[in-house]
Each structure stands twice: as structure tokens, then as C-alpha cells.
Amino acid sequence: MHMCGELAPPHKLNHVSGAALQMQRELQWLKEMEMFVNPSRRTWYNSDDKTPQMLFSENHEKLKSQGEQWMKDTATSCSIAAALIVTVVFAAAFTVPGGVHSETGVPVFVEKSSFIIFAMSDTISMFTSATSLLMFVSILTSRYAEQDFLYVLPKRLCIGLLTLFTSITFMIGAFTAAMYTTLKEKSNLFLIPVALLACLPVTSFVLLQFPLLIAVMYSTYGRGIFGKKSDRREDCNKNQRKQWLSTSIRW
């Protein structure tokens, strides 16, 4: 347990991208090793009168600060994009393609299926971008406690990135549907390059941010550090509990 309180060497930390995920992996090592020892031994003191948790906090203070800064920078950048999307799709809801009838206020193209697609895409993009913005704001205002790097902060980052990706996709879908509704009767050739260019922002986001999302999801929700050895770990815990109980009875 005290050995897990030491900071991993740089060549091991560099296998994980991002200081926050490195801090998460260090916490996972500590939590995994806690399952191998009896609860009474998790608070033992070493020769310096330090418990494993005290030693971990002392050796990982710098990495914790770096992880906090990395998380804040990522959340700030993504929150700006989410705020811009919220502004755009909110305004698009009141400036529908083709306008509205002056007498009734009903949209002109309300009967067209492409307009329904526009309305649904704009609505989904609005709510997902607002959710993404709230997630990133919650990251910025988090207390950044040591244990938050294990699950709380990565979970919020996953939700924020997923909803941001969804909002970008449906925003582009709403734009494409609006162009199709407006220009279908006038120029069909213009719609082909619009559809091709609409894939550019989504593809760019996938190439730039999707690897980060996959890394966070795999590190948070994937298999543990010991992979498929979870059954073996449970058997080890059972054997240790039996030995501890038999020792207690004998004493």
C-alpha cells in the first residue's frame, strides 16, 4: 500500500494522455491494491509515521495541480464552443427558413418534411449543447478534491464531450435541412456541395476530440488495471478474509 503511494516514473505516466487521466490512473492503482489487503492494514503507518493515503497525497500534489489545470483548460475551450452553439440554434428557432405567415405566425414550410427535420435537429442541438455547457461549467466550479479525479470529473467530461458532439452533429443537420428547404426548388446542384461540406465540421471534431473522449471513457468505464483477473482478485480477498478470521479466532 505504501509503495502505491509513490509517484509512478515518467515513462509509465506518459502511457496515459493528460495529467487528469494520469492522476486517475494513480488513484486506480491505490484502489486496486486496497482490495488485496485487509481493511485494518490500509491505515498502517510506515517508518515516517505516514499512512498510504497520506503518502499518496504528498507525492501526488504536483500531479493533482497539473490535472486540475488540464481539466480547467479543456472545460473552458469546450464550454466556449457549447455557448456558441446554444446562441446559434436558439436564434435559428425564431428565424425559420422561409419565414412565417404574417397573419397566423405559422411557418411557411411547416408542411414539408425537410422543415420538420430542421425543427427536430435544432431542438436536439439546443438541449444537448445546453447540457454540455452545464457539464463544463460544473467542471470549472468543482472543488477538485483528490478523489474527484477517480470518477466524478471524468464522468462529467465524458457527458460534456458526448453532448457537445451530438449538438454539433444536429446543428449541421439543421443547417443542411434549412438549405434544402429553401433552395430545393431553385438549385439542386447547390445542395450537393452543401451536403459534402456539412460533413467537414463533424469529421474535424471526430479527428480532434474523439480520441480524448475514447481515452476518458476507457479509463473510467473500461476494464480495471488487472483486466480479467477480477475473479482471481475476489478469490484472493476471500482467502485473505478466511485467514484473518482464523487468526483472530486462534488468538
Score class of each variant (00 low, 15 high):
residue 2 H to A: 10
residue 5 G to Y: 01
residue 6 E to T: 14
residue 7 L to S: 10
residue 11 H to W: 11
residue 12 K to D: 07
residue 14 N to D: 09
residue 21 L to C: 06
residue 21 L to Q: 08
residue 23 M to D: 01
residue 29 W to G: 12
residue 33 M to P: 08
residue 37 V to S: 03
residue 37 V to H: 03
residue 39 P to M: 09
residue 42 R to Q: 14
residue 50 K to C: 11
residue 52 P to Q: 01
residue 57 S to M: 04
residue 65 S to M: 08
residue 66 Q to I: 01
residue 72 K to C: 08
residue 77 S to G: 07
residue 79 S to P: 01
residue 80 I to G: 03
residue 81 A to V: 15
residue 84 L to Q: 12
residue 88 V to M: 08
residue 89 V to A: 04
residue 91 A to P: 03
residue 98 G to K: 05
residue 104 T to W: 06
residue 109 F to D: 08
residue 109 F to Q: 03
residue 117 I to P: 00
residue 117 I to A: 08
residue 118 F to T: 00
residue 125 S to C: 07
residue 126 M to I: 05
residue 132 S to R: 02
residue 135 M to T: 08
residue 141 T to I: 04
residue 141 T to C: 11
residue 142 S to A: 15
residue 146 E to D: 13
residue 148 D to R: 02
residue 149 F to K: 00
residue 151 Y to I: 05
residue 154 P to M: 05
residue 155 K to N: 15
residue 157 L to Q: 04
residue 157 L to D: 01
residue 158 C to Q: 07
residue 162 L to F: 02
residue 163 T to E: 06
residue 166 T to S: 14
residue 171 M to D: 01
residue 175 F to D: 03
residue 184 K to E: 14
residue 187 S to I: 03
residue 193 P to I: 13
residue 194 V to R: 02
residue 194 V to W: 03
residue 194 V to E: 08
residue 198 A to I: 08
residue 203 T to R: 09
residue 204 S to R: 08
residue 208 L to N: 04
residue 211 P to E: 04
residue 215 A to Q: 11
residue 218 Y to H: 13
residue 224 G to I: 01
residue 226 F to K: 13
residue 228 K to S: 13
residue 228 K to M: 10
residue 237 N to R: 15
residue 237 N to A: 15
residue 238 K to I: 05
residue 241 R to K: 13
residue 243 Q to Y: 10
residue 250 R to P: 09
residue 251 W to A: 12
